[in-house]
Design a protein around this nucleic acid. Structure first.
Lengths: 155, 155
DNA sequence: TGTGAAATTTAATGGCG
DNA sequence: CGCCATTAAATTTCACA
């Protein structure tokens, strides 16, 4: 069940975490592998499911979506499917997680303005009571893999 | 202040959002531009700050961090700097956002097990009362740009 | 801004330790 | 598993529109 990664894998994850567009050749150079081996490693990480996706981080505030919010939701269980469907009609919702506790879902959305938020709340309120918080800023966190690879014993 | 994107830009963001490793040549092919033009566009999006980062999404549960949690935090303002420093000592915290409302910070962490969580709470509790929720699952959301590009008028 | 073309670098494959 | 070598493809740069 648990996948064991060696220091090559951790180094690759560290590099791709910072820049997913690095070429295999450059990855190889940086970690001391040939380009073929580096490529095999990356593909293997994808095949094993460790890397779920190569994506981008977007600054939505620059393109007109300057109201980022967190929405906490309670909902009635019988409407769950319909409710999720409603959520997915809103592409402004960039992520949605089911969690334990008083609120069942925590969603993040990027909205244009207050009336955009109002519209979103109007559609959600049928299914439960949404609690909205404005996301003021992000606190930068270090690369997960930078600190974890150092815990590995040399092989 | 607001950056206006055309349909080429939206198409590029849509593509890179799904696969950040697409080659410029392929991007160009898919949206009807030469590779040079496609590359210019991507670089311009990065330079203007719209694309903040090319990164990866990792399945941490596969590599031993099978307890994903959301932590809501209240803290005393006088300790804010020290508090953030504490947070950044924990690379298991993958994101941290300052929000309005009763709780000032919402952090996400990937932990190994309950004792790992206990250790994290022990270090955070000095600064305020953390409220922990287990992240049960993620609800898949559609690509933000897929639905937004269709709203553009042809130029 | 976009295109096209030439030189350099990478990607992809297959065979070998 | 990783390295090397080869062919195909992509990147980079630049002149031109």
């Amino acid at each position: 069940m648990k996948i064991v990664l060696d220091h090559y894998d951790y180094n690759i994850l560290e590099l791709l975490n910072d820049n997913a567009r690095l070429s295999y050749a450059e990855i190889g150079r940086l970690i001391g592998l040939s380009q073929s081996a580096a490529k095999e490693r990356v593909i293997s990480l994808v095949d094993r499911g460790v890397i779920k996706k190569f994506g981008i981080e977007v600054d939505y505030s620059l393109i007109g979506y300057s109201l980022p919010v967190l929405i906490h939701l309670k909902f009635r269980n019988d409407d769950f499917k319909i409710f999720l469907n409603q959520l997915q009609q809103f592409p402004e919702i960039t992520s949605c997680k089911r969690v334990t506790g008083e609120y069942c879902l925590v969603a993040e959305a990027v909205l244009k303005d207050n009336s955009h938020l109002e519209h979103l709340i109007d559609r959600l309120i049928r299914y439960g009571i949404p609690s909205t918080a404005i996301r003021l800023s992000e606190v930068g966190m270090p690369n997960f893999f930078t600190l974890h690879k150092s815990k590995l014993k040399k092989s």
